[in-house]
Design a protein around this nucleic acid. Sequence first.
DNA 1: GATGAATGAGCATTCATTCAT
DNA 2: AATGAATGAATGCTCATTCAT
Lengths: 222, 222, 222, 222
Amino acid sequence: MAPHITADRLLDAAAEVFGARGYHDARVSEIARAAGVAQGTVYLYFESKERLYEAVLERFAEAVRGVAARIRWDDIRSTVDLRDRFADLYTATFELCARNRGVAGLVLGGPPVGRSSEIRARLIRDTERISTAYLEAGAASGLLRPLSAAPIARAIVGLLVHTATWTIVTEGRTSDLCRLAEELLDFELYGLVAPSQLPPGDAPSAAAGEAPAATALHSPEV
Amino acid sequence: MAPHITADRLLDAAAEVFGARGYHDARVSEIARAAGVAQGTVYLYFESKERLYEAVLERFAEAVRGVAARIRWDDIRSTVDLRDRFADLYTATFELCARNRGVAGLVLGGPPVGRSSEIRARLIRDTERISTAYLEAGAASGLLRPLSAAPIARAIVGLLVHTATWTIVTEGRTSDLCRLAEELLDFELYGLVAPSQLPPGDAPSAAAGEAPAATALHSPEV
Amino acid sequence: MAPHITADRLLDAAAEVFGARGYHDARVSEIARAAGVAQGTVYLYFESKERLYEAVLERFAEAVRGVAARIRWDDIRSTVDLRDRFADLYTATFELCARNRGVAGLVLGGPPVGRSSEIRARLIRDTERISTAYLEAGAASGLLRPLSAAPIARAIVGLLVHTATWTIVTEGRTSDLCRLAEELLDFELYGLVAPSQLPPGDAPSAAAGEAPAATALHSPEV
Amino acid sequence: MAPHITADRLLDAAAEVFGARGYHDARVSEIARAAGVAQGTVYLYFESKERLYEAVLERFAEAVRGVAARIRWDDIRSTVDLRDRFADLYTATFELCARNRGVAGLVLGGPPVGRSSEIRARLIRDTERISTAYLEAGAASGLLRPLSAAPIARAIVGLLVHTATWTIVTEGRTSDLCRLAEELLDFELYGLVAPSQLPPGDAPSAAAGEAPAATALHSPEV
DNA sequence: GATGAATGAGCATTCATTCAT
DNA sequence: AATGAATGAATGCTCATTCAT
């Protein structure tokens, strides 16, 4: 058996077992059995249970980053573009979580084990960084309000993480994830307050009859 | 020694130790030592390490619910009132987390141990329920947009939980929590999009020169 | 409360609890509760759980010895007298066991705890000694065959102990104990073999037409 | 190391240690050491200390049953045949107990631990069943008196068990077990009473000069 | 005498890891 | 590379006993 095939089978089995039982209640023997190898074999490919766990988390984190990387980020000229791109991103991320509920739960909310907290922190911070970059770029281009970028980026990530954790991982929702993404984005972009309640000063200039020209939002480097 | 005093000392010590080490790495002996009692004494007050852990989480969850219960919820006549009340709520909650970083981290993101998942789920769902009620009451009164209440309530809770987890528990921020709350509320209420970019149809009626009268928001039953 | 009353209540409660649970599964707390006193009080009257157990056993052993002491042992002139006296003894002993199944079981078959083995051994050996003495006196008087006294005495005691243990303690038989005693005695005295199968040499002398005179059996000192 | 070899070593070591200390005072660590393995190894072969104990008892009970199974039970045509066969059985059983004093003591008189009481009860009842069957067959063939089979069978078993427990296990007698068996059988078959004291009606018919023909005792199914 | 909260030594069991085959 | 039997350190929990009140 080609070595890397065994390693992959172990990662798959570990994702399964860790996902179902959590780190502490998962037994190395169970993972080995699920992978169809002997217990000792696990240690040919991974130094320890902890490293194996980290590898499982890392693989999922990488997949999440891959989702963002595959989105076409250029040509955002309006809030509608922005909304469409992010709807794609959210939907793809939700679908990834829906297909990997167990591991997604561990990455988003598992106990600190070895470097697991760092893996989670890196994923969260990478995501916050992207968010921050777009908020700043959006503010610069005039599309978005000039909010305090860091805490708002964090809020946006939290909103996503929490929805993924509860609606998708815990409750197991797998359908209509696109609509879910759009509802969240509608909230993010336009807020809760009814337009009729907006202070006049915030109203779009009626005179021009159209929105002031906002420059296109160049994809920020993240 | 009065029994409840010992029980309280144990809860305090357990919160300390569980908070610092997490459930699995905390030793009962360590908790006993921290409480200044013998190991066996722990079992006079708590059936097991697991039950003690649950009691610690439950006490914190109760404190969080108490924060919401102490807010004066009536007399919300405008989005400004709404904002003020929620700013109080957010600030008080953040301060509670800041004063109990260890336990807050466990409640918001610890591993599933015994009934811990249910305790967390109940806290989250209670909070989501309050949020949902206000969203619906706000929409009914005309103050808020008629959004899909459940997912948006969840998003709002997620935004809070994530901020508490990362900014307060993980990073240890303890100052300016009031400003943090206000920034989040500003985002929640008005969204990201610059007013200039809002679609004209959503603009406040210019003719009237003022916002249409919205009825006062009666405190919903939660 | 008069001290000895408390001590007696403790002995009663301990007999109850030890009888129901056995030594190792009985809790001192349970005995205290059954006696209606606090745990510490047990230690005012008994040095330890072990000594309390021994006291319970000793009290029962004493009662068994008392049964034998109350039988009128003189005037045994025939095997019929012998049979009647022993039937009384067996019946009274069986009834004592029936009224104290729990403790009887412990005395006859409990685990070795502290001096419990010695208490049992003393009771068994006292009983064997009585039996031996009667076998020897019986043989001397010509009523009984000159068997090897010690092993046969032991066999007789074993037959009693086993019947008490299984028929009375384990199966809970409480009625007709007198008939049970008689059946056992019939077996002891006349054996299994059908008279028709007895070897001629053992037959009573036909010439005399009657049994040879046997002297009365004087109660042996035991 | 072949698995069953380790299991056997553990059983041997456990028999040794349990026999010497009893269940409650035996330490798993001691058994492991006696078997020359690590503590954890015990749990590869036995679920718990309790199961190991049961296995030890069961193995001995099986050996006792094996003794009875190896006796040639056919061709019993007289009380002499009967006596010879049972002398063999008793002797072999006594020798088994003499070679395994520790375990024999536990099987015959240990505390109730897990299923130990059931193991003992099954052994006792199997033995009583065999005894009952022979008593009934003996009575049917005319060799034995028509006694109440069940209580007498129990008495016989008790006599054996008690002798094994005290003479062999406790006192450690290992020699002359054959004679011991014969003494017991003599008592069982012919009873205590001197032939001269037997009631005339029970005397063998003098006219025939010999015992009436009794039919052969066919081995009962047990 | 009586209480019962507190004590802490003691032990079965688990399971990640190793290594001879 | 693969195996899986063996390892043994580590720890939650029990409960007889004590002693301040």
